[in-house]
Design a protein around this nucleic acid. Structure first.
Length: 349
DNA sequence: AAGTCGGGGTT
DNA sequence: AACCCAGACTT
């Protein structure tokens, strides 16, 4: 767009006054910038900070990360969510060691070939780590630009995305793209917020079409809400003679890959949860009845989980399931990289 | 283009 | 409850 407003100088001045002081803003090390960008995908700053510090203490450089076991990386990610990020981070670290001699790529094309790095994350790394003209389009920037240009319709549609990338490209300055990226993200996070934007203190208000039209509370237009199904499961707190409980590791790929959990199964259609729990107990080599322990509700973006836990006793035949498993004490369970919904069940033991 | 993939904070 | 978050990837 030839008529894009010159917002970069306004953002620089604002950022200098009220920009946030964040741990990853004290470095330009590509490894640390990369890690912060991956952790921050769809995740709030406050949630990331402690994970960022712990992860760096455990994996201080890309060589250490590449040499680690995949399970170890997932365990450092436990509780942060979107575990494919941890798998991709680990795979990308190995890729950089093998293909780039341990040196992080410095071009957009090479960055995007790394698993977990898309167009926006690559732009952020280019700008912040390499000080080049990287362009970003994250949730903050999307909201700022939708209001700045009063973009109608679903901002996640492919047509909107295309337009937003054009605007993002034209607004990004040739110099100080790093400051620009962090400033516009800060603006979206602290000023141009989803609800009740603080327009009186916004440095871009004079250029903002939504504000000019008094429609800053109507944009961006909300996405059409879709119904989310509820999955019914039963979980088993299966104790051996020493009181230790059975846990198993979820397969590395797929939902919550690599995390530990108590044995579960879906509630059979037409069956009661208790009958399904009894069946699960028998399938695992246990015996006798089950006792109701408590209920856990867990929400994901595309389904809800209704999980009822039962206590049971292990039979003398022992465990007959498949895959990696272990018998752990309550103390050990609290230290384990547990599936979030199952972490809630610790209060039942 | 639509679906998958978490967990927590905000409203 | 619904929405959002420094999105990427698969189908």
């Amino acid at each position: 767009m030839s008529d894009s407003p010159q917002i970069a100088p306004l953002l620089f001045a604002w950022y200098g006054r009220v920009g946030r002081d964040l741990p990853w803003r004290h470095t330009r090390a590509p490894y640390r910038i990369w890690l912060s960008e991956i952790m921050l995908q769809q995740t709030t700053v406050t949630a990331v900070i402690p994970y960022y510090q712990c992860f760096l203490a455990r994996f201080p450089d890309i060589g250490v990360l590449a040499a680690a076991a995949a399970e170890e990386v997932v365990e450092a990610w436990a509780g942060l969510g979107y575990y494919s990020r941890a798998r991709n981070l680990h795979a990308a670290a190995r890729q950089v060691m093998e293909l780039h001699n341990g040196c992080f790529p410095e071009t957009l094309e090479e960055l995007i070939t790394l698993p977990g790095i898309g167009r926006s994350t690559a732009g952020a790394i280019l700008a912040i780590a390499h000080q080049e003209r990287g362009v970003i389009l994250d949730g903050n920037v999307r909201r700022v630009l939708v209001r700045l240009f009063a973009l109608e319709g679903d901002p996640r549609s492919s047509a909107a995305e295309k337009q937003l990338w054009l605007w993002a490209e034209s607004l990004t300055p040739a110099e100080r793209a790093d400051d620009y990226a962090q400033a516009i993200m800060d603006l979206g996070a602290t000023c141009c917020t989803p609800t009740k934007p603080n327009c009186p203190e916004c440095p871009l208000a004079v250029h903002c079409q939504a504000f000019t039209q008094g429609r800053q509370d109507e944009l961006p237009q909300a996405r059409a809400a879709k119904a989310v199904p509820t999955v019914q499961q039963v979980g088993l707190l299966l104790a051996d003679k020493r009181g230790r409980l059975l846990v198993r590791r979820r397969p590395m790929n797929g939902l919550l890959g690599g995390l530990w959990e108590f044995p579960t199964r879906e509630v059979l259609p037409g069956a009661t949860p208790e009958a399904s729990a009894r069946l699960l107990l028998q399938e695992l080599g246990g015996s006798g009845s089950v006792e109701e322990a408590g209920k856990v509700a867990h929400a994901y973006s595309h389904f809800k989980l209704d999980l009822r836990f039962y206590r049971g006793k292990a039979g003398t035949a022992g465990y007959v399931g498949e895959g990696e498993h272990d018998w752990l004490t309550a103390a050990a369970l609290r230290e384990l990289a547990l599936h979030g919904a199952h972490k809630k069940a610790l209060k039942f033991i």
